[in-house]
Amino acid sequence: MTLSQLEVGETGIVKEFTDLEMSVKLMEMGCLPGEQVRVCRIAPLGDPIAIQVSGYQLSLRKFEASTIILQ
């Protein structure tokens, strides 16, 4: 299951990444393995999405969310 499959309000725990380049950026922003993420909102046009992670809100595109595999 990947982050992009979560509905608004659902939570998950990050397990691993499918894309090394993207993972470096995501991890710097606090989106690490073992971290809990929650989907807060989806942009009016369906993409990007906003997630709560490490105590703040991060926005990322659906494609980028699909590289994050959840436990």
């Binding site: 380049e21 993207m22 950026k25 922003m29 906003a50 703040y56 809100q57 991060l58 926005s59 980028e64």
Partner: peptide, 11 residues
């Protein structure tokens, strides 16, 4: 190169 959009939404 590929683009990405990973951005903080400040309060």
């Amino acid at each position: 190169e590929r683009g990405y959009f990973i951005m903080e939404l400040p309060v």
